[in-house]
């Protein structure tokens, strides 16, 4: 399993200035190497996906980017400045994130949650607050206005006065994104933004992420929902066992047999051969039941031959697709 960074043609309609450059990021926990020498760049106006099986080190990599972990080796730069290994400084520099398991300030209102996100972009100190200077009032008004804009943007404005913990699940996810956007980031890191969502909510999130990109914020997103990722992302990087396997456009990644192997496994000794496959296909054609599924997985397997697919359970491939 060697890391071959498929030199990808830059995605259309993006400019090339890299917002985030991670070079050789390695994270070791004692003897366990969770992330090994991962390189990744995200350009402005780009949506990059990060996928990989469970335990591949995606979230660990995220935590290295955002300063929650200090990478054992490697550097992360944001617009040519090395990011300091402190979460609050990373956010201040312009990289905001959401969390895989929602981490809202549950007992604060929706509006207050977003106002907390404004923290780095406002500078009113304690004395200013105690004396209630005109500057304080101006800053508060400006913060509130910006926060309400963001709530409008995410569609949460009618619930501004509700407690965060009383929001339904999908809206909590949205609020996390709104809160992250409040720090006016140049790059937004989304950690599984659609986990636990139904298809409608997932589509809404997709539209939201596109809208965020349209506003000039680059997005790096971890997700297990392949349809979401391949619909949305200009580029996708695949992380397997801490290493970056492939990086490229949706087509390149979908066609890569190592990716499929990573998700589905490789053929084992005594795997059903061509004849058995033909038999099965004949039987299936006879039953005439699986036409839809065949079309769905067709793109995956176009360049790789059918051996790999049949090695695993064909049903699993569909499950992964349809999630």
């Amino acid at each position: 399993m060697t890391t071959t960074t498929a030199t990808t043609p830059p995605a259309p309609a993006t400019d090339d200035t890299p917002v985030l450059t991670a070079t050789g990021v390695t994270m070791r926990f004692g003897g366990l190497t969770a992330v090994r020498a991962v390189d990744l760049t995200v350009s402005a106006h780009e949506i990059v996906g990060l996928i990989g099986p469970n335990g591949a080190g995606k979230t660990t990599f995220f935590n290295c980017l955002t300063g929650l972990y200090i990478p054992t080796e490697g550097t992360v730069t944001y617009r040519d400045t090395v990011l300091p290994p402190k979460p609050h400084l990373v956010t201040k520099a312009g990289v905001a994130r959401t969390f895989q398991n929602i981490r809202l300030f549950a007992n604060m209102t929706v509006l207050e949650n977003v106002l907390v996100g404004r923290h780095t972009r406002t500078h009113e100190g304690l004395f200013s607050a105690l004396l209630r200077t005109p500057r304080f009032h101006r800053a508060e008004t400006a913060s509130t206005r910006r926060a309400m804009e963001l709530l409008d943007f995410t569609g949460l404005a009618p619930k501004a006065d509700h407690l965060a913990r009383n929001l339904p699940y999908g809206e909590q996810r949205k609020l996390e994104i709104a809160r992250a956007l409040a720090s006016d980031p140049g790059l937004l890191l989304l950690d599984e933004p659609t986990a636990g969502m139904n298809p409608q909510e997932t589509r809404a999130t997709e539209a939201l992420v596109r809208a965020i990109r349209a506003q000039g914020t680059a997005v790096l997103v971890i997700e297990h929902d392949m349809r979401f990722i391949f619909n949305l992302c200009d580029r996708v990087a695949v992380l397997v066992q801490g290493e970056k396997l492939v990086e490229g456009t949706s087509d390149v990644v979908q066609a890569d047999e190592r990716v499929i192997a990573a998700y589905l496994g490789t053929p084992f000794e005594g795997a059903p051969g061509e004849e058995e496959l033909a038999e099965v296909e004949a039987a299936e054609a006879g039953a005439g039941a699986t036409t839809g599924a065949g079309a769905g997985t067709g793109t995956d397997t176009a360049g790789t031959g059918t051996g790999t697919e049949t090695a695993g359970d064909p049903g699993a491939a569909r499950t992964e697709e349809d999630r």
Binding site: T66, H88, R97, F99, V116, H119, R179
Partner: peptide, 11 residues
């Protein structure tokens, strides 16, 4: 409420 999230918000 959540110190980790708070630092991630730039606090």
């Amino acid at each position: 409420e959540d110190e980790t999230a708070a630092t991630a918000m730039g606090i």
